[in-house]
Amino acid sequence: MFGLGIIRGLSITLRHFVMTYVDDIRKGKRRYHTPEGIAYRSNTEVTGMFTIQYPEEKLPVPEEFRYIPFLVYETSEDGMRKIRCTSCGICAKVCPPQCIWIVRTTDPDTGKPIPTPAEYYIDIDLCMSCGLCAEYCPFDAIKMDHDYEIASFDRMKHHVYNLEKLAKPLEYYASIRPVNYKAEEDARAAKAAAKQASQAA
């Protein structure tokens, strides 16, 4: 019969429509604004309403998520910030759109380079969030941030990140990428142990 296909199609959309309410009733309040609710709405079994109610609730980003790079600093016991970057320049060399600018510190007396950046800029209007800088950094000093809520009204003022804006504490890094952080720390500890063992031998 002509029109049967359309009716069948409409019945499927109707079922989808009804299912949103059925699932809402079945799951009740737990479905929204709770971590389990968000997890449920992004798993493979989800039926019914699919929407994440940003900004009231946010879809958590996975560990590997990358947005804009940041520089990791460690805070020593006396409260001093020690930036991990040694200004070796690998990030600036590997960056595909060349959005990283680094000025290396030189010792005013000897003129020799000191392993810390004097200036460090990232133009986030150029950055393509590819993550190559973080991938190839041998010192785990530059990492990709999870913070995506950075819209602004003026790009000339706010879109060139300098050292101050880029630097974020190690604890922050450990909190957004716990698995990577742990793997790196383990590798470092193993390396140190190996070194000690070889020195002892």
Binding site: G89, K93, V94, W101, V103, R104
Partner: peptide, 12 residues
Amino acid sequence: KPFKSRWPDGKF
């Protein structure tokens, strides 16, 4: 690439 103006004296 890499451009020489980015490092070691990469004034933005």
